[in-house]
Each structure stands twice: as structure tokens, then as C-alpha cells.
């Protein structure tokens, strides 16, 4: 009796295991790769499946389907993003360093070669002439202060994590970068307003003319000791003005595109905006470094024009002789003196 029971038990176990062995065979048929990695059926399922290359032949992006209103979230892979990343993380730091350090090196070399451009004390008249009125100086300094903060916070985007974070640690860098980002986003507005003010106030005196060409041919007074003729602004200053106007407009336009992301452009356009913004930004910084140099260390007496607004009459005659004549003629003619905020002596 006990043997019969054991036999029946064994039969039940075999019956229970039979379907399981069938499932295992079925599974093997679905995945015919053997233990040694060979596929006896000769099929190559991964080679025949859809891949990135095939999908990119259909469309420049690989997108999915989503149910939320944010359509951008459907974007899965965008190859341009890799090029942008290569630029942002690979090329941009080198371009930025080369342009800015190159300008600093060039200015240092020029200073060593030429030294400070001085005005001889015997040439100083002791009389002052108003070169920039209060509103002009206000406009200049508002734009300048914003530009310096925008430059430093902008450079932090490129170099901060590479240069600053190893020095001050991730926590301090995180807090600093957050405040730098706030200052960059919010001070961009007074900067843009300042550029508009500058264009309105100074565009009339910055129209290029024949005198500028003569000034350039004479080396602007930097080469040799003779100063070429110049009006209120010489060709170099006009260059700075148009650089600020043009680059300021470009930085403002591309910056606005980034302040209001996806309002106008898609993700490709946003990346292009950032590339333009960053490249113009580093060139802009280099150009303004040259402007700061010549306005302070490079030329004696130049800073007074934007500091107090008044410059020595002899300095003005040396560097802006045509403007001095114009101002003196205007003062001498009488009625214009009252209406003009910058009376000449």
C-alpha cells in the first residue's frame, strides 16, 4: 500500500513538472542564444532593430509622445545639443581665456612700450572745460557698473566651476553662483537702459567722418608724439561707442531670448542664442578692458572727463582740438550758452 502511495506521489510530481519543462523550451525558442553566446538560428535581433541612425534619417530630432501641455518635454534626443555641449564645455573656456588674457597681455606690452601718455605740466592751462555733463556721466557709470558685474557674473558661468570652485569649495561657490546669476539677470535691465541712453545722447557726435580717417592714418597719437585733429570724439572713441551700441544691442537681444526661454526659439535656437551671447560677451569684455586702460592708466587726464566731468583746457586742445574750437565758438556766439549744458571757457 505504501509503495502504491509512493508511486502515485512520484507520478503527481512528474505531472506537475511537465508543463514547466515545456515553458522552458518555449523560452529557449524565444531567445535562441546558447550558453556559449552563439545563435544557432543565425538571427541578429539587435542589428535589425530601430537605431538612432535610422531615426535621425527620418527627422533631426527623436521625439516621443506626451500628455502634458509642455511640448518641449517630448524631445528625447537632439544631436545639436551634443555640438553645443562640446562648444560650451570644450571650446568656449579656451576662446574666452585666449581673448581676455590676450587683450591683457597686449595692453601690458603696449604699456611697457609706450608708457603712460602724459600731458606736460607746462602745457596745462589751469582752466577747465566741461566735457561731459551730469546726465552723460550718470549714464556712463550706470552702464559701466552694470557691465562690470555682468562681466564677472558672466565669466563665472564659463570659468567658475573650473577656477573658483576648487578654491572656495562647492557650498560657497553654489551660493556665490546663485547670487551672480541673480545679479546677471536683474542688472541686465539697467545695462540695456544705459546703452539706450548712451546711443541717444552720443550718437550725433559719433558719426564717422573724414577727420576720423586722418586720425587713424596718424596712428591716433599713440605712435609718435604728434596728436592728430579730432572732434568731440576721436576715431578710437567712436569705435568704442559703436562697439558698445552694437554689442550691447546684440547682448540685450540674445539675453532677452534666454530670459524668456522658448518664447521665440526652440531648444536649437536657445543654444544658438547662448553661443552668440557668450562669444560676443568675451570680445566685449576684451574691448572694454582696452577702454578702461586708456581711460585710466594709459592716458593722464583722460579719467577727469568722466570723473569730475571737467578736463584741462590744454588737454582738450591737445586731444580734441576741433571740439574745443567748436565749443568756444558756440560760447562766444551767446545764446547757445544758456541752452547748452556744457559751456566752454
Amino acid at each position: 500500500m505504501q509503495r502504491v502511495a509512493t508511486l502515485l506521489g512520484a507520478l503527481l510530481v512528474m505531472a506537475a513538472l511537465w508543463p514547466a519543462s515545456g515553458l522552458d523550451m518555449s523560452a529557449r525558442a524565444q531567445s535562441p542564444i546558447q550558453a556559449d553566446g552563439q545563435n544557432p538560428m543565425g538571427a541578429r535581433p539587435t542589428a535589425d532593430s530601430v537605431n538612432e541612425e535610422f531615426l535621425f534619417k527620418q527627422s533631426p530630432k527623436i521625439t516621443g509622445r506626451i500628455s502634458i501641455p509642455d511640448g518641449k518635454a517630448a524631445n528625447l534626443i537632439q544631436p545639436q545639443g551634443r555640438q553645443y555641449q562640446m562648444f560650451r564645455e570644450g571650446w568656449l573656456p579656451w576662446i574666452g581665456a585666449l581673448v581676455i588674457l590676450g587683450m591683457l597681455a597686449a595692453l601690458a606690452a603696449f604699456f611697457l612700450y609706450r608708457g603712460r601718455i602724459l600731458t606736460d605740466h607746462s602745457q596745462e592751462s589751469g582752466k577747465k572745460i566741461l566735457r561731459f555733463n551730469a546726465f552723460e556721466r550718470f549714464t556712463h557709470w550706470m552702464t559701466a557698473v552694470c557691465f562690470i558685474i555682468l562681466s564677472l557674473s558672466g565669466l563665472n558661468y564659463i570659468f567658475g566651476k573650473r577656477l573658483l570652485m576648487p578654491l572656495i569649495g562647492p557650498d560657497a561657490f553654489g551660493a556665490l553662483a546663485q547670487w551672480a546669476k541673480y545679479s546677471h539677470v536683474y542688472l541686465a535691465w539697467p545695462f540695456m537702459l544705459g546703452v539706450i541712453f548712451m546711443v541717444v545722447v552720443w550718437v550725433r557726435d559719433n558719426i564717422p567722418n573724414r577727420i576720423d580717417w586722418e586720425w587713424i592714418k596718424a596712428g591716433g597719437g599713440f605712435i609718435g608724439s604728434k596728436h592728430p585733429h579730432a572732434g568731440r570724439f576721436n576715431a578710437g572713441q567712436k569705435g568704442v561707442f559703436w562697439m558698445v551700441a552694437g554689442f550691447g544691442a546684440a547682448m540685450g537681444a540674445t539675453g532677452l531670448m534666454m530670459l524668456f526661454p522658448f518664447a521665440v526659439f526652440d531648444v536649437n535656437g536657445m543654444q544658438v542664442m547662448q553661443v552668440i551671447h557668450s562669444l560676443i560677451g568675451v570680445v566685449f569684455i576684451a574691448g572694454i578692458l582696452a577702454h578702461i586702460y586708456i581711460g585710466t592708466l594709459g592716458m593722464k587726464g583722460a579719467y577727469d572727463a568722466m570723473g569730475s566731468g571737467k578736463v584741462d583746457l590744454a588737454w582738450a586742445r591737445t586731444h580734441h582740438d576741433l571740439w574745443v574750437e567748436q565749443e568756444q565758438a558756440r560760447t562766444a556766439s551767446g545764446p547757445q550758452v544758456a541752452s547748452h549744458p556744457a559751456p566752454a571757457e
Partner: peptide
Amino acid sequence: AFVAAVIAAIILGIGA
């Protein structure tokens, strides 16, 4: 003019 410019920049920045 410099002080006024700094104050104006701060006020405009806060407004922004």
C-alpha cells in the same frame, strides 16, 4: 553722478 548711477542701477535691478 557715480553714486546716483549705482543707486539707479540697484533700484532698476530690484524693479526688474
